[in-house]
């Protein structure tokens, strides 16, 4: 009667492969020769001390930055330069370290914006909000309501997000990313600034998203406890280089990782 404990992850196909990626801003090397892969359906954590290049890595993945060297293969398609909009259309959604919502808009409207890529009727039709456009909007609304229910934010449906506490804003942002029905979800510090209870809730949601929608998730997180509990595999960056890659247990034992996090005796 118990849930399956630690299901064995089959060797699943690679959804995204990062190969020898380097990124430099002028003389500053943000990433140096980083390679790793994200498999379909897994939760992949990217960890590392401050300034290790974690957010830069996410920015490369969703096309916001273009790697100076190396390549990123997403769904078998290799590319070097891609615009964020193309990444979004390709099925990559993300949330941001500092919440980036439309503060004056309601929760519902914010999540609806996540559907805008999926709206097919043109601007003109949408302005009329009549006939086919209305029907399409109703369809999208259904998806959004599903997400609102999933994230248990019914009570703030009509509340402007600027008025919400931080923990809830994070949840709304996750909702907006989910509205895109992404194949790959990038979460940049989803639990930053949360208290213990909010963290537990958010962990639950991340696991549920992964299980329920089968979404592949790559997340950056500082809370080691959370990372170890949530993720299937962890990649560790330090000063823009990959220093370890493996299951949470393996990574925890890795000397380089321990050194990076705890410091070594000189």
């Amino acid at each position: 009667m118990r849930p399956f404990e630690n299901p064995v992850i089959p060797q699943r196909e690679t959804l995204l492969a990062v190969e020898n990626v380097s990124l430099a801003f002028g003389g500053v090397k943000a990433l140096t020769d980083v390679s790793f892969d994200i498999r379909k359906g897994e939760i992949r954590a990217i960890i590392g001390p401050n300034g290790a290049g974690k957010t830069s890595m996410l920015n490369c993945i969703n096309g916001f930055y273009h790697p100076t060297h190396g390549s990123i293969t997403f769904k078998g398609e290799k590319r070097r330069r891609m615009r964020p909009s193309a990444a979004a259309r390709g099925g990559i959604a993300r949330t941001f370290q500092n919440v980036a919502l439309f503060k004056g808009m309601s929760t519902l409207d914010n999540i609806m914006t996540g559907r805008s890529l999926k709206m097919h009727k043109g601007f003109f039709w949408q302005m009329l909000r009549y006939g086919p456009a209305l029907k399409e909007e109703a369809g999208h609304r259904r998806v959004v309501e599903d997400i609102i229910d999933f994230l248990e934010i019914q009570h703030i449906r009509r509340t402007p997000v600027g008025k919400l506490p931080y923990g809830l804003q994070k949840r709304v942002e996750l909702g907006r990313a989910l509205a895109m029905e992404p194949e790959l979800l990038l979460l940049d510090e989803p639990m930053a600034g949360m208290n213990l209870e909010e963290k537990e809730d958010m962990s639950r949601f991340i696991l549920d998203v992964n299980q329920h929608f089968g979404t592949t998730i790559a997340l950056i997180e500082h809370d080691m406890g959370v990372v170890m509990d949530l993720s299937d595999r962890v990649v560790v960056l330090e000063y823009g280089r990959k220093i370890a890659d493996g299951t949470p247990q393996e990574v925890k034992r890795d000397e380089k990782v321990v050194a990076a996090y705890l410091g070594v005796a000189h």
């Binding site: 009667m1 118990r2 399956f4 549920d208 299980q211 329920h212």
Partner: peptide, 17 residues
């Protein structure tokens, strides 16, 4: 055990659930 809302329960063992 019977449940109303499925969220998060998909991967549970369903022999008695």
């Amino acid at each position: 055990i019977l449940y109303d809302k499925e969220r998060g329960l998909r991967d549970y063992d369903h022999t008695r659930l």
